[in-house]
Nucleic acid binder design. Structure first.
Length: 563
RNA sequence: GACCUGGUAGCUCAGUUGGUAGAGCACCUCCCUUUUAAGGAGGUGGUCCUGGGUUCGAGCCCCAGCCAGGUCACCA
């Protein structure tokens, strides 16, 4: 492993610490009794505290020094004074251990008492400190100046995602995003649990990937010798539980879709799905806006949220527009009662890209997606979707071409999708079969599997039920003003890092030639290697740099020898 | 998948027709007992993403590739 100078220095310090009898990775617990936040909130002059955290700044002024300690709650200033720490003659603890052997990033424990400095900063006067864990790699050290401007921030997106631990240590705003993420989950749980809906878990490995139209990941179970799919949705399992007699079930579902990755798609993402018996989609719309209003204020302390250039407000109620009306609003074209061909040619006139594999529902969806969707900035329910694109949704009570479905749009994106669930087993079977036909016709979004066990469950009877799914990642993006899903996932999927080879192929080759004839003349070695000038130069420099070979000038000329 | 932009020190970034690789912070040494992004003085530190090519000479130009970000397309 090639170490940088900074890493070598820190490793050397490990040895020096051990020579002083200090274990840089002690096993015993550290009895902390406070933290940075508590100290600042309940500050008492002279109070004794025991705290621990990472050393994040050292500002040494001879025999005194100010430093900053960062713990899970934030940072607190600590004051190291030589004569406070070393009361006797031996000043090693301050002069050597603190000043020289402690680095930014090291975990230390501190016993001290609180005081206020002359400039009024709440500070811990260190009486005793101990090393809890030494950091061998240097952290980036962003700094904030008096005007609040950040210098040297750790900003490279690739490095931040690949090394999220570093990102979290040095970028407090990043940590804040994830705290809000968890607050959102907690708020939703509270909202559901208060209404006595029941949190459940359903299979992630499924023999049939159902409940959505998406390409699944496939794996294989050895003892059963069958393919298994990682779930793309949990809908069909939750409905089985409604059949089984639960009145309300919900699950935070990690779903997996084997599709492209971009700033709004990660191969694994989190959806929340909830199903409530004896309800319909009208009830669910009321429920949804109450839920989001509650969640937004739990997360941000207000129902308002800023997203890019938009100010959005999650305060209920939200506008409700039928899909047909929306298309009239933005295109002037009325889809009601029109045939597939009429809609297709209308779409073409509007400049919407359509083809012959598209059925009526898909055509309408294309028009809506192209012309309408992006216009809804404030939370808006779009209702009554075409039947063809909603195979799990109950037919509309007043129009057999439509379904009782809504999606909630925010900033032009869908964040929730809900139905009056289809509970007619015969209709459901026909809809699945229609999907198969669409799939055969070439629509790769149509579901190509029929879950017969799900149909069997419906045949035992499912009460009228409304269900809703919410894209948790997208919702938290809106609540934290992040345009990229990677910013709201701790560990977004990345291409694997290439590992660096110790010796290049050329270096190996040259070394092999040399090993059998060491030492040999440089020119001879060069011509035997058959490398171009440039390549030779790079190779021999690489080898000498890593102290694998040595070049010496002698009376006979340049000699290369293996080390 | 297409196009655009980027990849240089631990971090943030400069780098002139193509002519000895730079700055700030960090780090190291010395001085400094209540400071607050940055006290003073001196110093160390480089696979310029990778591989080819052009050239006397490439961080820079050309070709191919890798990785990331963005825009679109596709997809919920």
């Amino acid at each position: 492993m090639q170490l940088t100078e900074l890493e070598l220095i820190r490793r050397e310090k490990l040895t020096q610490l051990r020579n002083l009898g200090i274990n840089p990775y002690p096993a015993d617990l550290f009895p902390l009794d406070s933290n940075s936040k508590e100290i600042k909130q309940h500050f008492e002059e002279g109070k004794k505290v025991t705290i621990a955290g990472r050393l994040m700044r050292k500002n040494i002024q001879g025999k005194a020094s100010f430093a900053q300690l960062q713990d899970s709650e934030g940072r607190i200033q600590v004051y190291f004074n030589r004569d406070e720490i070393c009361t006797g003659e031996d000043k090693t603890q301050y002069n050597e251990v603190y000043k020289k052997l402690l680095d930014i990033g090291d975990f230390i424990g501190i016993e001290g008492k609180l005081f206020t400095t002359q400039v009024g900063e709440k500070t811990v006067m260190v009486k005793k400190f101990s090393l809890l864990s030494k950091a061998l790699k240097p952290l980036p050290q962003p700094k904030v100046d008096a005007e609040g401007k950040v210098h040297d921030a750790f900003t490279d997106a690739e490095q931040r995602y690949r090394q999220r631990y570093v990102d979290l240590v040095v970028n407090p705003h990043v940590k804040e995003v994830f705290i809000k993420r968890t607050k959102l989950f907690n708020a939703m749980r509270t909202f559901f649990n208060d209404r006595e809906y029941f949190e459940v878990e359903t299979p992630i490995l499924q023999p049939i990937p159902g409940g959505a139209a998406a390409r699944p990941f496939v794996t294989h179970h050895n003892s059963l010798d069958i393919p298994l799919y990682m779930r793309i949705a949990n809908e069909l399992y939750l409905k089985r539980l409604i059949v089984g007699g639960f009145d309300g079930v919900y699950e935070f579902s990690k779903n997996f879709r084997n599709e492209g990755m971009d700033r709004t798609h990660n191969p694994e993402f989190t959806a929340m799905e909830i199903y409530v018996a004896y309800k319909d989609y009208n009830w669910m719309m009321d429920f949804c806006e109450q839920l989001l209003e509650f969640c937004a204020s739990e997360v941000n302390g207000t129902t308002k949220a800023t997203f890019g250039e938009h100010e959005i407000d999650f305060k209920a109620p939200y506008a409700r527009v039928t899909m047909a009306q929306s298309i009239v609003d933005f295109t002037g074209f009325d889809i009601s009662g029109k045939s597939e061909e009429e809609i297709r040619s209308a779409a073409k006139e509007m400049g919407v890209d359509v083809d012959d594999t598209m059925g009526k529902g898909k055509l309408i969806d294309e028009i809506f997606g192209e012309k309408c969707e992006g216009n809804y900035i404030q939370p808006t329910f779009i209702t009554d979707y075409p039947k063809e694109m909603s195979p799990l949704c109950k037919e509309h009570r007043t129009n057999p071409e439509l379904t009782e479905r809504f999606e909630l749009m925010v900033c032009g994106k869908e964040i929730a999708n809900a139905y009056s669930e289809l509970n007619d087993p015969i209709d459901q079977r026909e809809r699945f079969e229609a999907q198969l036909k669409l799939a055969d016709r070439g629509d790769d979004e149509a579901t190509a599997f029929i879950d017969f066990d799900f149909l069997r469950a419906l045949e035992y009877g499912m009460p009228p039920t409304s269900g809703m799914g919410i894209g948790m990642d997208r919702l938290i993006m809106f609540l934290t003003n992040n345009a990229s899903i990677q910013e709201v996932l701790f560990f977004p999927q990345m291409r694997p890092e290439k590992k660096k080879v110790e010796m290049t192929e050329d270096e190996k080759e040259v070394f092999t030639i040399l090993k059998n004839n060491s030492p040999m003349e440089l020119d001879a070695l060069k011509s035997q290697s058959g490398l171009s000038n440039k390549k030779w130069d790079k190779t021999i420099k690489g080898l000498t740099k890593n102290k694998i070979v040595k070049v010496e000038k002698t009376e006979e000329g340049l000699l290369v020898s293996a080390v």
